[in-house]
Design a protein around this nucleic acid. Structure first.
Lengths: 159, 159
DNA sequence: TAAATTTAGTTGACACTTCAAGTGAAATGT
DNA sequence: ACATTTCACTTGAAGTGTCAACTAAATTTA
């Protein structure tokens, strides 16, 4: 039946019934772009950018991480992360050391200055970005959104 | 009451109760990164990348767009879009013309080769990316995810 | 209608990301 | 125990993205 369309067809980009405005990945990309843009505005005056910021937050949450760990959490390429980390070191934000248990591994952690900068950015972005984004959301709705996103992530991580 | 935490506090990055795994924007960034990574794998052998791909899809859906239109839909900077478009023209994927009604405007549209390439990419990514991502999702769940994402987008677009 | 302003796009310099090709340390195989 | 392979980076070259400065067309203002 060529002219019958299941409801799911509009989520299938190759279908004639595809509707980009109903396609979750289109909105994920757009929300992410907008979020990044907003964050950049805050970060720039503080001499940071999104790349450095993601690394800084991960380090503030997890303490010490290897460059591979950072690449994994931030879903980035190793050479990129290496360079971000050394740029951050040159800016005094992180400390870089060879692992004591595995000579191949480079471990990274925030300096005091790095911790301070994280606190500063969070304080600035609190109302400007987060309060704005969550406006009108109830706790269960935020939770639901996280849950659905996590499911997409798990699905795509499979194999 | 310093030691009391409202449920919403865990979504507030500067709170001591903040939990990154419950933070929607963390997952949006990760899902987006993973999705981009998967797409790149498909696009690379075809001589494309995510940037070119986003432009190509928009053109295949909307027909002819100005460079500003493209920048708006894709949430990118104008100089970036200009360069992507001319790279795509050099690769034979799009046609670039001055608007007949407004001399400032540059209008862009897919060539036949561009249309073919879009079809090819969609066919390849259908099962590899989309079917995989939506696995286990019902139609209402996909719809709900889009709805929530759109709300985040609208919130952040405000002002 | 001429001047001033706004809009849409382009360009060059520079910072950043990525690929490909390394290095050296650890784990594995024989 | 030694050779081979894998792992965790690191580096240089090439490609991209972004800012600032510019051009030219359209619109607004005086």
């Amino acid at each position: 039946m060529v002219f019958h369309s299941s409801k799911l067809e509009k989520y299938s980009p190759s279908s004639q019934f595809f509707d980009i405005n109903e396609f979750p990945f289109y909105w994920i990309a757009r929300v992410n772009a907008l979020y990044s843009q907003e964050m950049e505005k805050t970060l720039k005056p503080l001499g940071m950018d999104i790349a450095r910021w993601r690394v800084a937050v991960l380090l503030s949450l997890y303490g010490t991480l290897s460059i591979s760990d950072i690449a994994e959490h931030a879903i980035g390429k190793l050479p990129t992360m290496t360079k971000i980390v050394y740029r951050m070191r040159d800016a005094g934000l992180v400390e870089v050391n060879a692992s004591e248990t595995d000579g191949r591994v480079t471990v990274v952690s925030l300096t005091d200055e790095g911790h301070d900068k994280v606190k500063m950015v969070l304080k600035t972005t609190e109302k400007k970005v987060f309060a704005k984004a969550f406006k009108g959301f109830t706790e269960p709705q935020i939770k639901k959104s996280t849950e659905l996103l996590r499911r997409y992530f798990i699905n795509m991580s499979a194999e």
